[in-house]
Design a protein around this nucleic acid. Structure first.
Lengths: 142, 142
DNA sequence: GATGCAGATGCAACCACTTGCATTTGCACC
DNA sequence: GGTGCAAATGCAAGTGGTTGCATCTGCATC
């Protein structure tokens, strides 16, 4: 699979050892649509690669998040969701009422990041953000 | 203690039963500086009111957060931190390198909330926000 | 191809938190 | 001051995630 070779290259460039477990875990994230929770990932790996331990999955996800290969977002459900870092940086609007998640272009928060850097010297990591609130249709219902 | 009477009134107005456990838990949050983790709270209650169960603490915190009496913030350490909702709405800048937490005035994100409402119809709940990044002094060290 | 070693893995124990359920209790109503 | 009931509590068992440690393995070097 081309994806696996590609993932191996990404890992090696990041200074990580290329193990079958890591390649499988990262490929699973890349192939699994936009978001995936850690437990969904473990469930999926259980069928395709039953020899991968849960702790390995969590450790791999944590190191991949540190390296900027994946985003880790707390969606408010208590479970973190993971997403492969693509070209497009974006944010999420999460409705507290219906749980719906919509994507949001990066431009909204660029100004905030600049302001924070200028005024507080704080280099904000606004690459991927979860904003909670109430969506349009739920407001209409209320 | 005046605080306890006041807390009882807040609870009753919110439609909650006023139990000694709830009053103790909420008073402990009010008295314990800015942030407190659930486990610190349980530890503190263990000495002052040893009859309060951990599950009661978590349930009380969850319902208080729902009612808007306290803020619950994931500080990235895996443990949620709780804070009594005062007059001043503010945000937190959390340094990924040294773990330092600084407060940030609400004004920075007001514009974003307005923009989101006008363009996406999304009523963002930006009352209390955790922004991750790298602080000034850690940038200087790097 | 053999060797050494840092880093990765698997296992099991552990911690933070949640949930189901029987019991208790605040409080509204009489 | 009783009584009834919904809501809160305590207990215990369960779940999701983390950590310590012994073992294993990718990979650089010879």
């Amino acid at each position: 699979m081309a994806c696996e070779n590609e993932t191996a290259v990404v890992l090696r460039e990041a200074g990580q050892k290329v193990t079958p477990q890591r390649v499988h875990i990262l490929c699973a994230i890349r192939h699994s649509g936009v978001h995936i929770t850690a437990s969904q990932l473990i469930e999926e790996l259980r069928t395709s690669h039953p020899f991968v331990d849960a702790s390995t999955v969590y450790r791999t996800l944590a190191s991949a998040a540190d390296l900027g290969l994946v985003y880790e977002t707390d969606m408010g459900s208590g479970e973190s969701e993971f997403e492969w870092v693509g070209k497009d940086r974006h944010h999420h609007l999460i409705c507290r009422t219906c749980g719906d998640v919509t994507s949001l272009d990066n431009s909204y928060l660029d100004g905030v990041a600049t302001l924070l850097y200028e005024e507080a010297g704080f280099q904000a990591d606004l690459g991927h953000f979860a904003i909670f609130g109430v969506c349009k249709s739920c407001q209409a219902k209320a």
